[in-house]
């Protein structure tokens, strides 16, 4: 299996990334919201992942808030209230998902105490908890902190909505310097979100 692991240089506006040569599975075995959120072997976008949680990318795509067709298919972040933004990939019903799928590593929560923190990491934690309740083992995701926007773009997917600009970039004109600064931002954002993940989950458990 192709194993990209976490590659900071692949993250974002100026970075590089390698397009996958694989083809999408004709009929997905499970419809889920993003990389690392597949419940079984062969349930990812390409149909050849070997375990729960190790799949590449989402098997269903929609662009924004309220556009998911079923339970568990909503992304999160960017739109929606505090409660909705606490259930990425785990919404109750069609059209009740907050934001689009897949969920890029750079996407952040825009509402509530988790504002500015990673959406994908909350989605992955919810997924791991669900698998744990079902006594299932979960493998690492191909990217430790979720699929970078650049990787998604190079593999036929795009970031979702909004007009406020790139979620994780740098205001530098020189492309090489911008890519380096962006990779540094991305690393800091992902690691900070990871450090605060327990707190983020606690925040989601509170109704305030």
């Amino acid at each position: 299996m192709e194993n990209l692991k976490y590659n900071q240089e692949a993250n974002g506006c100026g970075g590089s990334s390698t397009p996958s040569k694989k083809k999408d599975i004709a009929v997905p075995l499970e419809l889920h919201a993003c990389m690392g959120l597949n419940a079984c072997k062969g349930h990812d976008r390409y149909g050849d992942n070997d375990c729960a949680g190790s799949g590449y990318c989402s098997t269903q795509v929609h662009y924004c808030h309220t556009m998911n067709n079923c339970r568990g298919q909503g992304g999160c972040g960017l739109y929606g209230d505090t409660e909705e933004q606490c259930t990425p990939g785990a919404n109750d019903c069609a059209w009740q998902g907050s934001c689009g799928t897949p969920i890029p590593a750079e996407r952040f929560v825009t509402q509530g105490k988790n504002k500015g923190r990673s959406v994908w990491q909350i989605a992955r934690k919810l997924f791991e908890n669900r698998m744990n309740d079902a006594n299932r083992n979960v493998k690492e995701a191909p990217f430790a902190y979720g699929p970078p926007i650049k990787w998604l773009e190079n593999n036929g997917r795009s970031e979702s909505c909004g007009y406020s600009g790139h979620k994780n970039c740098a205001f530098i004109v020189n492309p090489e310097d911008r890519a380096k600064a962006q990779a540094k931002h991305s690393k800091e954002f992902s690691e900070e979100s990871h450090r605060l993940l327990d707190d983020s989950m606690k925040n989601c458990g509170c109704k305030d």
Partner: peptide, 27 residues
Amino acid sequence: NSKFYSQNNVDTIYYDKQHKPKFGNED
């Protein structure tokens, strides 16, 4: 219904010079 209103969304945010997100409204 609380789902009908959120103080912020992707279009009420901007980025400072370090490209850290800033939010136009507060919760």
